[in-house]
Design a protein around this nucleic acid. Structure first.
Length: 328
DNA sequence: AGCCAGGCTTGGT
DNA sequence: ACCAAGCATGGC
C-alpha cells in the first residue's frame, strides 16, 4: 500500500538522522524502518512524504502520529527566542521535526544510549531486534500467498524459540527458508524486526542482553523491562501526568536519569518543554550563551527552560542537529 | 566525592 | 601507526 502525506517544511533526512531514532536506514533515495509492526519505506516528494507498506492499510493515522506531519512547524518556530544562535540553527536545519515514538521503544533505546555514540546505539538496537524481535515483511515483497507458509517462520538466528512450538512446525515437513517465505534473499540486514516487547525482554537473562554488546546497560534494560512487565510501571498511564510528574515517574526506572527521561518525554510523550542536556547541548549552551562564565548544570537547565519557551525541546533539537552536522 | 563499567569512534600525536 | 578521550548512569 502506498500513500502520500502532503506536508510543507518537512526534511525527512534531517529528522530521521538527528539522534531521535536509531532504526532508520537510507536505501537509495528512501528511508526504510519499522513503526510498530509495519515495515515502512518513506521518501521525500515535491509536496510531502510518500509512504509504502507491504500490507493493506486503510487508516494511516499511526503514520501521521509517528511523523507528526500535522504539526504546524511555523507556529513552533515563532515561539523560539530571537537570538543569533537560534536564527543560525533554524536557518541551517530547515524542516527538522520531532517524531512521536512508541514509549517503550524510545525508553529502551535511550537506556541503551548512555555513554554511547549514535553509531553504536544503532548497532546495539539492531542486534536486540534481530535476536529478540519478530521478523516483518518488507514492503516491496508480496504477502505470502500460502497461508501455511506464514506459520513456518524459522526462529531468528541466534535465538531459541521457547514455548509455543506449535507455531514453528505445523504443516510443512521441512521448514521453509526465509527466502521461500519472503520471496527475497533474507541475508542478515535484509530482514526487519519488530522491537521486542517489555514482556519478551523480561523473560531473558542478563547474558542474553550482553550478547547484544550493551555492556553494563544490560542489567538496566532488564530491570526496566521487568518493572514494566510486572505492572510496577505503567508507560501508558505516564501519558496522563504532567511534565515534572512524568519525569519523576520515569526516573524510578533503572538506568533512567534526568537526561534519558527528558529524551523519552520529548520523543515519545510529546512534552515539548523537555530539554535533554547531553554533552553537545551543554557545550553549545555554555559557548553560545555563557562564554567564559562558570555556570552549574542546574543553572543551565533553568536557563534553558526560561529562555527557549514552551517548545524548548524543539529548540534543543535544532541546536543539537546544527552543532553536530554543521559545526564539526 | 570520585571512580569504574563495554566497546567503538574520534581526535591528537 | 598508536593511544587516549568521550560517552550518562548507577553502584560502590
Amino acid at each position: 500500500m502506498e500513500t502520500l502525506l502532503t506536508v510543507r517544511d518537512y526534511d525527512l533526512d534531517a529528522t530521521l538522522d538527528s539522534g531521535q531514532v536509531f532504526r532508520w536506514r537510507k536505501e537509495d533515495d528512501a528511508w526504510v524502518g519499522v513503526i510498530g509492526r509495519h515495515r515502512v519505506r518513506l521518501s521525500q516528494t515535491g509536496d510531502g512524504i510518500c509512504a509504502q507498506t507491504a500490507e493493506q492499510v486503510t487508516d494511516w493515522q499511526w503514520l501521521r502520529e509517528f511523523l507528526q506531519s500535522e504539526t504546524d512547524l511555523a507556529a513552533v518556530l515563532k515561539t523560539f527566542p530571537d537570538d543569533e544562535p537560534m536564527r543560525v540553527a533554524v536557518a541551517a536545519c530547515h524542516g527538522l521535526r520531532l517524531l512521536r515514538q512508541d514509549p517503550w521503544e524510545c525508553l529502551a533505546s535511550f537506556i541503551l544510549s548512555s555513554t554511547k555514540q549514535i553509531v553504536q546505539i544503532r548497532q546495539i538496537v539492531a542486534l536486540l531486534c534481530e535476536k529478540f524481535g519478530e521478523p516483518l515483511i518488507r514492503p516491496e515483497a508480496p504477502l505470502p500467498t500460502n497461508p501455511h507458509l506464514t506459520l513456518t517462520l524459522s526462529p531468528p538466528i541466534g535465538r531459541e524459540r521457547r514455548g509455543n512450538s506449535k507455531r514453528t512446525r505445523t504443516v510443512l515437513s521441512k521448514p521453509a527458508s526465509k527466502s521461500q517465505v519472503y520471496g527475497f534473499n533474507a541475508a542478515r540486514g535484509d530482514l526487519f524486526y519488530s522491537f521486542p516487547s517489555p514482556k519478551s525482554i523480561a523473560g531473558l537473562t542478563e547474558s542474553d542482553l550482553r550478547a547484544c554488546k550493551m555492556g553494563f546497560r544490560a542489567p538496566h534494560l532488564l530491570a526496566a523491562a521487568r518493572q514494566i512487565a510486572d505492572g510496577k510501571m505503567e508507560l501508558e498511564s505516564v501519558r496522563k501526568l504532567d511534565y515534572s510528574e512524568a519525569r519523576a515517574e520515569l526516573m524510578k526506572l533503572r538506568g533512567v536519569g534526568g537526561k534519558i527521561a527528558d529524551c523519552v518525554l520529548l520523543f515519545a510523550y510529546g512534552h515539548d518543554s523537555a530539554f535533554p542536556v547531553d554533552v553537545w547541548i551543554e557545550r553549545a549552551l555554555r559557548q553560545l550563551y555563557f562564554p567564559r562564565r562558570r555556570v552549574t548544570e542546574k543553572k543551565l537547565r533553568h536557563f534553558a527552560a526560561m529562555h527557549f519557551g514552551p517548545h524548548a525541546g524543539y529548540a534543543q533539537q535544532y541546536l543539537f542537529h546544527y552543532i553536530r552536522t554543521k559545526l564539526r
